[in-house]
């Protein structure tokens, strides 16, 4: 077990705990709970096993659902993003001979943030669609997705900067 894996495991556990204990009780402006645990889907290295990634994203979502006693929307959206991530990587990172290896080690700023916001945006959209699960609530879904997306993105970006630095040192 190398250092990367240990970092990943610790961040997995920490993300679950912080999400359920802190961020789920934030209620910014009364209703915004940023979903920071999506960071796990970003920092998992791109060259690692995809099957294990799908399984771990399922477990991540399930744990969040289980600990925050929500229905199953976290599981479904996290699992789906885990499954779709290879295609998202393919379409967000610009074509070059150099394949991206991981989010934190890449230095293409624009591509990185495009990838990050695609993952977070898709995840939030899926999550709120599943939570409301009603065509009549479309405007509510979009509003919630956008507002939560902004805060999640800010927090995840901040934490991911911390990650890059810790990796560099």
């Amino acid at each position: 077990m190398n250092r990367n894996n240990i970092t990943l495991l610790i961040s997995f556990i920490l993300l679950v705990f912080f999400q359920t204990l802190v961020f789920n009780n934030l209620y910014l402006f009364g209703f915004i709970n940023p979903m920071v645990y999506v960071l796990f889907l970003v920092i998992y290295r791109f060259d690692y096993d995809q099957t294990f990634f799908i399984l771990s994203s399922f477990i991540l979502g399930f744990l969040i659902d289980f600990l925050s006693q929500s229905g199953g929307a976290h599981t479904l959206s996290t699992l789906t993003i885990g499954f779709l991530r290879p295609s998202i990587i393919k379409y967000t990172f610009s074509v070059s001979s150099e394949m991206p290896v991981s989010f934190q080690d890449d230095n293409r700023i624009f591509d990185k943030y495009l990838f990050l916001s695609t993952i977070v945006g898709l995840h939030h959209f899926l999550y709120f669609t599943l939570v409301y699960f009603n065509l009549e609530a479309t405007s509510l879904i979009i509003k919630n997705t956008l507002l939560t997306f902004i805060f999640s993105l800010i927090l995840i970006s901040l934490i991911s900067i911390f990650y890059s630095k810790s990796n560099d040192s």
């Binding site: 799908i54 399922f58 399930f62 199953g72 599981t75 599943l130």
Partner: peptide, 20 residues
């Protein structure tokens, strides 16, 4: 694996939330 887990999570969703 994705499909299997999707079905499991749908069942989970189905069991946990009356609305869903």
């Amino acid at each position: 694996i994705y499909l299997i887990l999707l079905i499991i999570s749908l069942l989970y969703l189905n069991r946990n939330s009356n609305f869903h």
